[in-house]
Design a protein around this nucleic acid. Structure first.
Lengths: 280, 280
DNA sequence: TAAAAATACTCCATAGGTATTTTAT
DNA sequence: ATAAAATACCTATGGAGTATTTTTA
């Protein structure tokens, strides 16, 4: 039987039209390729070339052979790619969340407990996260409400309480607590990639003008400007070193959430040690 | 990249469950197979086996790999088979006819003119023969009427005149000519595989009882019995040495046919020398 | 202790290289 | 003269064999 390397060489010869050109591209010598093609014809038990003058060209058999050989070779590469991807995915925990904060907690914990595995994270809306968990795209999901489903294990993960983060001199900086509507109307700094928090501020603070920035730029602006922003209990650690701002809790129900971690029941055993370490 | 032989060995290992058993079936040594599977894993860049205790078994990667490898290997064999069949078919002239006699003439002539090619023949009804020519199943067709079609070249091939072949003592043996109906009612010997002639005797000699035999038995019975039978101008040569029978021409229009040889116009060049030797 | 896989080594088949010839433009 | 394929001959990689060890049921 012929071998894959011969099929690949054959395809290259067909593309290059000459053995010499093909042998260069394949980084083998022209005589080696000449012999390889003769061997291929022997093993195919059929002539594949017209050897005419000082030229070699595919005959009718060769044209048909080329078509199917391309498929065999590409399938062989697909075989390799698919199994590599499958292997990689088995070495990876895919965590999806509807908010960024839980991921900051989950990733180091998962890394610690599953040190041999890669941790991949994704931020998406709750519906997509839940669907992705059910169809196997994600191996664990974190959303802001519990789920009742016999196929899913649901464990309390953490809480997050949204707060306003006001410059010390702000007119409302003295408040013990506030409602979202108390701040509506002015200008605020906002991080991008907020997950479901984005929907909440969009709905409850329709009149506010938000200056949206990626994390790094956002943090710079929080420190350098006196524009109000948000913080939360889940990022208190990061923001504690910012001294010229005060934290005012927000009492709206939507601003105080409990996160739940979900895994498929069939994966419970794998996640047991993680789930038992919850809530964080 | 791995090679086909490694995929085949892998499939055999998966089927046999042990290297030792598989190595026997593959007619290679167990250490050789052990190494080959290690090399395969190297080249797939992914582990395919659990090497557990003194046993080897497919892991999850291996199970997926097996599935796709089977497809790749079978496609590679299909590649070889299809090209071999294509090559063979190009070395074969497929002639179909609606009657046997034209084939007796066509085969030796084709063999003489196309000595490098195989001649394959088939007897079938006119409709099937014509369809087969059009769709490429047959490279040449012979039927009992001309065809008007711009894609088909139609050349007069030969004539055949059906005759009764009567024992010398038969009550009608003296006739100069007869109609089919003149003989209808008695018992006659008939060859099997008559092509369209079968339809004609079925239609015009409904009351006759036919004793049907394959060629050899039929010829024996023609010589040994005094049961009337048919002969024709196309087999006169064969029947001329039968001395105790007389030939009586049949004057019905259906009993006197002209055969036409048909080839697709796109194949005209190939068949030119044959067509120019017609009619036979 | 039997049976399976892995290891150590040896060997050789063959893929591949270099030099050259043949053939045609 | 140039360029492509084929041929002759040589090299060496790695596939395959034998003998042996390791492991476990």
């Amino acid at each position: 039987m012929f071998e894959l390397y011969q099929l690949e060489e054959f395809i290259k010869v067909a593309e290059c039209k000459t053995l010499s050109k093909a042998s260069e591209e394949l980084n083998i010598s022209q005589p080696a390729l000449s012999r390889a093609m003769k061997n291929l014809e022997d093993e195919a038990e059929v002539p594949l070339f017209n050897r005419v003058k000082n030229r070699i060209e595919l005959n009718d058999n060769g044209i048909l052979f080329l078509e199917i050989a391309r498929k065999v070779v590409s399938d062989a590469h697909m075989l390799k790619d698919r199994v590599k991807e499958y292997d990689r995915s088995k070495r990876t925990v895919f965590v999806a969340s509807s908010a960024p904060a839980p991921l900051y907690l989950a990733v180091p914990k998962l890394s610690e407990l599953y040190s041999a595995m890669m941790i991949a994270t994704e931020l998406n809306d709750e519906k997509t996260v839940l669907n992705g968990l059910r169809n196997g795209t994600y191996s664990a999901a974190i959303i802001s409400h519990p789920v009742e489903d016999e196929n899913i294990v649901c464990v309390r993960f953490s809480e997050e309480h949204l707060c306003f983060f006001l410059p010390e001199g702000h007119r409302l900086a003295h408040m013990k607590y506030m409602k979202l509507s108390d701040m509506d109307g002015g200008t605020m700094l906002l991080r991008s990639n907020l997950g479901f928090w984005q929907d909440i501020v969009d709905k409850k603070m329709k009149k506010t003008h938000f200056l949206v920035h990626e994390e790094d730029a956002f943090n710079e602006l929080v420190m350098a400007s006196n524009i109000p922003s948000f913080t939360s209990t889940a990022v208190q650690g990061r923001d504690r070193n910012i001294k010229n701002r005060v934290t005012v809790p927000i009492i709206d129900a939507e601003a105080n959430v409990t996160y739940y971690c979900l895994v498929l029941r069939k994966n419970y055993q794998f996640f047991e040690k993680f789930l038992k370490s919850l809530p964080l």
